[in-house]
Amino acid sequence: MTLREGLMLPELVKEITQADINRYAEASGDYNPIHIDEAFAAGTPLKGTIAHGMLVLAFVSEMLARTFGDAWDESGRLFVKFKSPTRPGDTVTVSGQIDALSAESDIVLATCSVVCRNQADEVLVSGEARVRIPDRL
């Protein structure tokens, strides 16, 4: 893949179920009841369980890893805001694009916008990623 400004990153689409959220709680060790206890979550202002923010960010990170390879895992920077909760039953589409490329000695710095939306086109997560890419990539 030739990197250039304006390049759209390869989209990821993930369906989130309560079973996925429960399995993520086990895998991550994060058992906050807002994610896994439907009775508790129903009594909060969110009115139901929500996915872990870190689960949704894992999809963002995966999209960036598929684009930039180990350069992402070794040197990535990510800043995101959680705009709306991701709920069981949501289909999450993760997308992004390269906004800027700049050269710094023997590396190229890519700045990307990233966004996650649900099936209603609501923004769940948005932010910016930066990655330092060795010239060899």
Binding site: F40, L46, G53, D73, S75, G76, L78, V80, P85
Partner: peptide, 25 residues
């Protein structure tokens, strides 16, 4: 992040507002 649960008592219903990462290795 999960290990924070060993260090501080976060009330049930605590949620994430934003997150930042820098990967160094």
């Amino acid at each position: 992040i999960a290990s924070l649960g060993e260090l501080m008592i976060l009330p049930p219903g605590t949620i994430h507002a934003s997150q930042e990462f820098e990967f160094h290795g």
